[in-house]
Design a protein around this nucleic acid. Structure first.
Lengths: 246, 246
DNA sequence: CGCGATTTGTGCACGCCTTCACAAGCGCCT
DNA sequence: AGGCGCTTGTGAAGGCGTGCACAAATCGCG
């Protein structure tokens, strides 16, 4: 099974993708593996063991092997995984070979930062359009990109083939923006505004709430303080270093 | 400061905190409940049913009831939950009644935005110090707060009683910053830099990687595209609207 | 050519989380 | 006072994810 090292992009010949039914937990870890692999590739490594890659990604090696086994065996027993091959494989699975177009709505405090965030471009995403509802912001150039009015979103999204939208507006506007995005054909939304978005079932929403992350940390602070106040205060074995993704 | 536990707030009357051993999954949802409750309180509601609150928070009502049952029964059968009481209870559990001091390291693109993010202050966190390693940035005022050099972190953290740190530096500096934070007594870190941080076991780390969120969405885009290409193209039952905390 | 060292891939068991379904409790109305 | 409808709290079942432990596979070396 491992012999079929098809040099071409690890896809399928014809129209049958036979898309692997990956567990969500695995999907959430693939980007982390990918980052670690890129780092390894830069250092010149050609192969990695599951142990090595697991350490670089901050996970258990058994978990890593099981994750990778889900997307087809691309390792060699006794040797490890081919770094370049695995990168191609994961990037294909994640659909990063498409250089996906992303639009961002809401050029406020956070939106500004996101528009200039280098981490997007370096990992296969192009921010191709910025929108805002405030006429005073329309025309402003950020990182070489002009802010457009949200009324133009529908047209621009069609022109550029945008399928992913990022919402960085105040909470009150988020649902309205989501509706506009959905109407424009966007099927994946990354939402930075607090609150729950209501969208059709075929649209995926991921939410990042910065305050929630702090609140979770606050809980652990509270817990640790309670424990150390107690006589039997163990030094907090609780799971630290947990990634945030699902 | 004042890590002393006080049993006066909603907690039990006697001296034993008996800190509820909440499941991680529950903890991650409490902030969302809290936000929904605040919203309800603003609209004047005095009580909520589990059904209503669950809808507002975007979860299953059974899950919400079980979550709330873990922190002691504060509902009334046949009526629902007292909004104000529940807010107090959750804020106590999360330790938000302490108005926790937070410091932020790395005043770049993202750090700038985080320093000005209103959502922190409005939810019980005070950003009391900003740090950067770049001397050119030291002294710059953001939102009325002056950027200090990271060499002063140790002293300032002690003075202000900072237990939570936010890392918004480039990836290459993240580990070094984490070491400084830990040495200064910080026990909770929110890390926005890609990569794995290595910290002592008593320090909690949560990671937010914006690019990873997009990559996960990209996967679902890829999957949806593959499915629609298939004859039996189901209309994506996949879990949408999933919060990122988990 | 065979053997040992090494590493992957996976069967299995365990624990956590989710979800259903329902008994217990509460208030209101008659 | 009693009954009725509504809502919470929870026992139980099922599913998912994790981690262990080991068989299978591969390479290098004598």
């Amino acid at each position: 099974m491992s012999q079929q090292r098809q040099g071409s992009t690890p896809g399928e010949a014809d129209g049958v993708p036979a898309f692997p039914d990956l567990p969500e937990a695995t999907i959430a870890r693939l980007p982390e593996y990918l980052r670690a692999l890129h780092h390894l590739a830069e250092t010149g490594a050609e192969t990695v063991s599951s142990e090595g890659l697991a350490a670089a990604a901050g996970v258990n090696s058994a978990k890593l092997r099981k994750d990778l086994s889900h997307l087809g065996s691309y390792g060699t027993r006794g040797v490890g995984y081919d770094v370049a091959l695995l990168i191609d494989q994961i990037e294909y699975i994640l659909g990063l070979d498409k250089n996906r177009a992303v639009c961002l709505v809401g050029v406020g405090n956070l939106g500004h930062a996101l528009a200039g965030y280098a981490g997007f471009a370096s990992r296969g995403f192009r921010v191709v359009a910025l929108f805002d509802a405030d006429p005073k912001k329309v025309g402003e150039r950020i990182n070489g990109l002009a802010v457009q009015h949200i009324d133009d979103l529908d047209r621009v999204a069609a022109e550029e083939g945008i399928a992913i939208g990022v919402i960085a507006t105040p909470p009150g506007s988020a649902q309205a923006v989501a509706d506009v995005l959905v109407a424009a054909g966007v099927t994946s939304i990354l939402n930075f505004a607090p609150g729950v978005l209501s969208v059709p079932p075929n649209v995926d929403v991921r939410k990042v709430d910065l305050a929630i992350e702090l609140q979770i940390l606050s809980f652990h602070e509270h817990r640790k303080a309670s424990l150390t106040a107690l006589p039997g205060g163990r030094s907090a074995e609780g799971g630290n270093q947990e990634a945030v993704g699902s």
